[in-house]
Design a protein around this nucleic acid. Structure first.
Lengths: 321, 321
DNA sequence: TTGTACGCGTTATCAA
DNA sequence: TTGATAACGCGTACAA
């Protein structure tokens, strides 16, 4: 492998001059530049980027943590992050954690070791003390409401959105409202849970634990939701479904099981994915690709100031309410 | 940032000894080891991994090229790759190319610059000369049939699978068979096209260009397939659908448009994703996660020998044929 | 406008 | 069993 010194020798100049040409610095004469360029071509020279990184203390690599990638929610976030990374000449290191803390810690370690310049966490399992421990080593950006904490984020106010959707159903006459959710824990889940309870309290509605459907993530999970509802003596009349895939699965299954939507069961999905449009599902639009973009921009933002970016949501009215 | 020299000074030993402790080399006395470990703890020392990379000429980073990630096919491959990377203490650099050649070249460049040890290409746009140009710089693994070429791969024999599925439909009495496909070009597409034409020839069946549906990738695309079929004077009686998502979309749309499946239209999906199970779709199982695993293993395989790994497929009979 | 010399943090070699 | 020192390849003060 030919290195910068070889090129310098070939061109009859110093390594500095070669480096300047490489990095497009000013103050290098046309003639020398030409010789250097020629030498580079002749030798098929290629910078060893690791040496650059060592020298600069920067890698132009940003880590992205997701629990799993085979779900539209994370795939869309990832897409947005990747698009913006490309624009800014950064590359991404992909961490699939499956919500195992040890895997998340590996990402933190890479930040500490300076192999990545920043870390974006799309969904986490680690607790705050852990995250704060690694904060000094580089920007850590979260995709959840971190207001009040010393940590940057791009997020949707899930409390507000949930209240909004619930009130919408209430005004449509629904009094027996439930919701489905992907995981039991997590900040977003907690905010939604709070919103749900506050909503019930405000309207003097009873809390039915049966109306909360946990661990539903994919299209095919919709079937089980319908199964459970079929067996209930006093089923909900409306469901907030946190994810259009699941909503689509519910609509499909309901159809086969002769549950009429929206008459027997009203559905509001989340995200406004293409599948929601095709199946005419009323949904709360969450611009995941755009959120991904913002997350990335925060990750490479200069300066140490913490920023919170709330992304507004929008109700898309279609045929399932 | 404290470095290895600081630690050495603190422990009263040489950097060599510290390095030995760090890398668990033999020939270091218990006492010195203890002192070093203590100094490491005291100083909160952390290796600078870039220096390690420079010194070793290796990064334990593998690149993964996908056109986009928001599709189950690539998400599942990625999942398998990521799982295996974790097992082997490698990290992944994620390249989303959107089938733009310039983006693919960036991945090749990183290989050349030694920022990644190997490159896995799940689907490509670049042509063979380009790939071969970068071959000397590190392992490049493809997810397509590369037999006859000097390039390693894990792949499904799509020619064979297509013939198999077509014959299956033929024996069920179908004579008007079409297929849907995600993209117009690409090795896998070409093999399928060849299989389709050979099948028609072998059975003296006419070639209807209408029966080939290009650019259908997602659930919501199923609607358009059904629309087109509705408008055909002489519609196909069976469809090979390269992707269960699209198959599910077709089944759903057909239901709403009063096309009976399998009576009016038989469907064979591909991949055997969970959605196919839920919707009772007959499908060709392709173990994408397992393919991902194998791709990764080939990427880090020692030695320069080229290997071809064919992954067998299996028909899962359900209710859409 | 150009070049020398040093620093980045680690591993590997070889002598002790 | 230990340590001094030479790579690794590049960027950049600083001097000229």
């Amino acid at each position: 492998m030919t290195n910068i010194r070889d090129v310098a020798k070939m061109a009859g100049v110093s390594v500095t001059t070669v480096s300047r040409v490489l990095n497009k610095h000013p103050y290098v004469s046309k003639e020398k530049k030409a010789v250097v360029l020629e030498a580079i071509k002749q030798s098929n020279y290629q910078q060893n980027i690791n040496a650059v990184h060592l020298s600069m203390g920067k890698t132009f690599l940003v880590g992205v943590v997701v629990p799993f990638i085979d779900h539209p929610y994370f795939a869309l976030l990832m897409k947005g992050i990747a698009n913006e990374a490309l624009e800014n000449n950064y590359k991404l290191v992909f961490f699939q954690t499956n919500y195992e803390e040890a895997r998340e810690v590996e990402a933190f370690q890479m930040l500490k070791q300076k192999q990545i310049d920043a870390l974006i966490i799309c969904s986490r399992i680690s607790c705050w003390p852990t995250i704060e421990e690694y904060k000094p080593y580089g920007p850590i950006i979260l995709c959840e409401d971190t207001r009040g904490r010393n940590m940057s984020s791009t997020f949707v106010d899930h409390y507000k959105s949930f209240i909004f959707a619930l009130e919408y159903l209430y005004h449509k006459g629904h009094r027996k409202i439930g919701y489905t959710i992907g995981r039991k824990t997590g900040t977003n889940t907690r905010f939604r849970e709070m919103a749900y309870k506050d909503f019930l309290n405000n309207h003097n509605l009873p809390y039915e634990s049966d109306y909360i459907f946990e661990h539903y993530l994919h299209f095919e999970d919709g079937e089980q939701v319908i199964e459970r509802i079929k067996q209930m003596a006093n089923p909900p009349s409306a469901l907030l479904v946190t994810g259009d895939e699941v909503a689509a699965g519910i609509v499909t299954s309901a159809h086969y099981r002769n549950i009429s939507i929206p008459d027997d069961l009203a559905i509001i999905g989340f995200n406004n994915q293409p599948i929601a449009k095709m199946m005419n599902i009323t949904t709360i639009e969450i611009p995941l690709v755009e959120i991904g973009r913002q997350l990335f921009l925060q990750a490479i933002q200069e300066g140490k100031d913490v920023t919170y970016q709330e992304i507004p949501i929008k109700l898309i009215e279609r045929k399932t309410v």
